[in-house]
Design a protein around this nucleic acid. Structure first.
Length: 399
RNA sequence: GCUCUGAUCGUCUAGUUCGGUCAAGGACACGGCCCUCUCACGGCCGUAACUCGGGUUCAAAUCCCGAUCAGAGCACCA
């Protein structure tokens, strides 16, 4: 590029720089020129010489004259991104199917809403499907609340989420059994009848127990007995992963265990229940989920599930691990709310003071404001605290 | 203890992939002014940040190393 053209570009930015900051500076002008003429990068010294000359001229000019000349030029302002960042793979044409997978042992709070809204928003953005899936595979320690199923659906609707289909894992147990048996037949899984403590000890040391070495027929037989003969705690189905994995909990993690406890959906029909990592992975594949959004506390589960996807030779969905949207104060967790209700400090899950979706509705918050707030907060991996003042401000703005 | 993350105005964030339009943008909050009988709304203006220390480079919020701080996980919970 000829020198006078470079000078012209340099002059434009030098004038602007001088107007904005009193006098033009070489580094600043150089950066702007380089962004417009990248070819010049190979010859920085020459560029610096030319630009210095221009800067000297400009800095000698009176302010009024600079103002007059700057007015002749137009400057492009960088546009700010609105909404969620693009997904590279989705832009290439892959469908974006997402799912929100709560445990119906309680009601939705703002933390759940973050995940749900992000999933819904991404599926809308790329015209994919958004599923609601209840991960209700522990009838005992995470006992499902019968009312929670319908309430969650209601809360999602209130938040403006378009649920394509609703699924309950408790109704898909046969499907999980089918895949479990496939794993046993392929030699990727085995029934372990070691005592819990013994298993933990082996795991810690990274050594295999005798059960791991049993043949397929034996394992299949024990698997059948899990449904009928073994008692709770006596047998589990484990996946063969890597006994030398640095994290001991990943070593041959448990996929199924026995729970003799009535489930509100299926009663006592099943007693062998899949664990989260198994059921979730199978369903994500079966439902053709391509984008999983979850809290970053699931990082380890991602590693666990990877082994399962590999065993089946399935493609693992894209994953976005996002920071938690935390609530400040004593009602931060679902369990805190439960206690507060039982102690009478809250009138219920729909108490306007509760950070539940029902609570926000009772308080008269505009659901669009919650949505907008969540989308603006983005998909960062670090935790952040809920800013009620800002939601109120957005709510006001929306009218 | 082991494994893994993260760190930008008071707060929430844009920017980090691929160093140069960043003398770091926006929103909320805060301060001032205008509008208004008052409040609210609206409009204009302002204060204010790259955790720290090294390194690479003409050039670092961006890349590399170290430190610090913070978070998460280490289940027959999800």
């Amino acid at each position: 590029m000829p020198e006078n053209q470079i000078k012209e570009i340099a002059r434009k930015y030098a004038l602007k720089n001088a107007l904005d900051y009193g006098s033009a500076r070489l580094g600043a002008v150089l950066n702007k020129v380089l962004s417009e003429v990248p070819d010049f990068k190979g010859n920085i010294k020459e560029a610096a010489r030319i630009i210095s000359e221009v800067i000297n001229e400009v800095n000698a000019m009176p302010k009024a004259e600079i103002e007059q000349e700057v007015a002749k030029y137009t400057f492009v302002k960088k546009e700010e991104r609105i909404g969620l960042p693009e997904l590279e793979w989705a832009l290439q044409g892959m469908q974006v199917n997402t799912r929100f997978a709560p445990n119906p042992s309680g009601f939705m709070h703002i933390g759940h809403a973050k995940i749900a809204v992000l999933c819904d928003e991404y599926s809308k953005k790329y015209k994919g499907l958004f599923y609601l899936r209840f991960d209700d595979t522990d009838p005992k320690t995470k006992k499902p609340l019968p009312e929670a199923y319908a309430q969650t659906a209601k809360d999602l609707e209130w938040l403006g989420c378009n649920v394509y289909k609703t699924i309950k894992q408790s109704e898909r147990i046969e499907l999980y059994y089918k895949f479990a048996e496939e794993l046993i037949r392929n030699g990727n899984a085995y029934v372990c009848t070691c005592a819990k403590e013994e298993m933990q000890e082996n795991r810690k040391k990274g050594i295999a127990c005798v059960c791991r070495g049993s043949n397929k027929e034996e394992a299949l037989d024990k698997w059948k007995k899990m449904k009928t003969d073994y008692k709770e705690g006596e047998a589990v189905l484990r996946l063969k992963t890597d006994l030398a994995h640095p994290n001991s909990s990943i070593r041959d993690w448990v996929m199924f265990r026995i729970i003799d406890y009535a489930h509100p959906v299926t009663g006592i029909r099943y007693r062998v229940w899949p664990l989260y990592n198994f059921a979730s992975a199978v369903d994500d594949h079966e439902m053709q989920i391509t984008l999983v959004i979850r809290g970053k506390e699931h990082e380890l589960n991602q590693m666990k599930q990877q082994y399962l996807f590999d065993a089946f030779s399935w493609t693992i969905p894209h994953v976005l691990e996002v920071g938690t949207l935390k609530v400040q104060g004593e009602l931060a967790h679902k369990s805190d709310i439960k206690i507060a209700i039982s102690e009478g400090r809250l009138t219920g899950w729909d108490d306007p003071r509760a950070p539940t979706i029902m609570g926000f509705r009772a308080k008269g918050v505009n659901p669009k404001a919650i949505r907008e707030y969540i989308i603006a907060s983005g998909i960062k991996k670090h935790d952040s605290y809920l800013d009620l003042q800002k939601i109120a401000a957005i709510s006001k703005k929306l009218g």
